[in-house]
């Protein structure tokens, strides 16, 4: 078989795992998922507690509103509990949970639209660079980020904050791979433009 033919067959056979890379899952965690799926609330709570802070951070990143993010997380946890019997593959639990969280964020954004014009400062890690510059960046990025749609925000947060590959993100947000890539490109470009505009307005801040 030629190299090209082998490549074609690999491409045809490629499932999501081949692209996204095999997820590392312990058997204990899988057991928890199976138990939770069977209706064990303690197992479910253990799963959610372990990921709770991260999920809340993702929701806050997407929604840019702490209250809305908490509401979204709460809704996501309830939906996850109710729908858990429908989950076929325990190893897909994380992606499945991300998806429910993102959908809850969309619903929350559509319902309240509280994020518009209500941008709050967020806690930051200790700064190594000039404080004024970081603040200016943050405000510019906040403005640009809030101007994006929730679906664009979800893609960029899941990719750069949660560290998920595009294929996984496409399934989570329910779009094609190409659409996810396009949204990521658009969102990143918008953020770059915001920084460029900031640099043009205040050259002193440019490093």
């Amino acid at each position: 078989m030629s190299v090209a033919a082998a490549g074609v067959i690999r491409w045809l056979m490629a499932g999501d795992e081949a692209v996204a890379g095999p997820a590392v899952r312990t058997s204990a965690r899988a057991d928890l998922v199976i138990r939770a799926r069977s209706g064990d609330p303690e197992a479910f709570e253990a799963l959610i507690r372990a990921a709770g802070d991260h999920l809340l951070a993702v929701a806050r990143k997407i929604l840019r509103d702490p209250d809305a993010a908490e509401d979204a997380l709460q809704q996501a946890v309830i939906r996850a509990w109710r729908r858990l019997p429908q989950l076929r593959d325990p190893d897909r639990f994380d992606a499945w949970l991300y998806r429910i969280l993102v959908m809850s964020c969309y619903a929350e954004a559509n319902r309240a639209r509280r994020y518009r014009g209500d941008v709050r400062a967020i806690d930051a890690v200790p700064m190594e660079r000039d404080f004024a510059t970081r603040i200016a960046d943050r405000e510019a990025l906040e403005r640009a980020f809030v101007a994006l749609t929730p679906s664009h925000r979800a893609v960029i947060v899941l990719h750069y904050f949660a560290g998920l590959p595009l294929n996984e993100i496409a399934r989570i947000v329910g779009v094609s791979h190409g659409t996810a890539r396009s949204r990521l490109h658009y969102a990143l470009q918008a953020l770059r433009s915001a920084l460029e505009a900031l640099d043009r307005a205040d050259p002193e801040l440019v490093r």
Partner: peptide, 11 residues
């Protein structure tokens, strides 16, 4: 952008 995006929410 990454600096800002990856900033912990601390929540």
């Amino acid at each position: 952008v990454m600096d800002w995006l990856r900033t912990s929410e601390g929540a």
